[in-house]
Computed example of a mutant assay.
Amino acid sequence: MEEISWSDFEKVDLRVGTILTVADFPKARKPAYQLTIDFGSTIGVKQSSAQITVHYSKDELIGRQVVAVVNFPKKQIANFYSECLVTGFADDDGNIILTTVEKKVPNGARLM
Results as ranks from 00 to 15, higher is better:
residue 76 Q to C: 04
residue 84 C to S: 09
residue 101 V to N: 03
residue 85 L to T: 12
residue 2 E to V: 13
residue 12 V to P: 01
residue 45 V to L: 07
residue 62 I to T: 06
residue 88 G to E: 02
residue 55 H to P: 01
residue 59 D to W: 04
residue 86 V to T: 04
residue 7 S to Y: 08
residue 94 G to H: 11
residue 85 L to D: 11
residue 98 L to W: 05
residue 17 G to D: 01
residue 76 Q to M: 10
residue 1 M to S: 14
residue 104 K to Q: 12
residue 98 L to Q: 06
residue 111 L to R: 05
residue 84 C to W: 08
residue 65 Q to G: 02
residue 101 V to R: 03
residue 95 N to V: 07
residue 6 W to D: 10
residue 103 K to F: 03
residue 83 E to F: 04
residue 18 T to R: 09
residue 5 S to K: 14
residue 23 A to L: 10
residue 55 H to A: 03
residue 98 L to F: 05
residue 54 V to L: 04
residue 84 C to D: 06
residue 83 E to K: 09
residue 2 E to D: 14
residue 44 G to K: 06
residue 79 N to D: 15
residue 17 G to W: 02
residue 67 V to D: 00
residue 8 D to P: 01
residue 64 R to H: 08
residue 65 Q to H: 11
residue 48 S to T: 13
residue 32 A to W: 02
residue 105 V to C: 06
residue 49 S to K: 00
residue 97 I to F: 07
residue 78 A to P: 00
residue 79 N to L: 13
residue 11 K to Y: 02
residue 100 T to L: 08
residue 43 I to C: 00
residue 65 Q to N: 09
residue 65 Q to R: 09
residue 37 I to F: 03
residue 68 A to L: 06
residue 110 R to T: 12
residue 40 G to D: 04
residue 66 V to L: 04
residue 84 C to G: 07
residue 97 I to K: 14
residue 112 M to R: 06
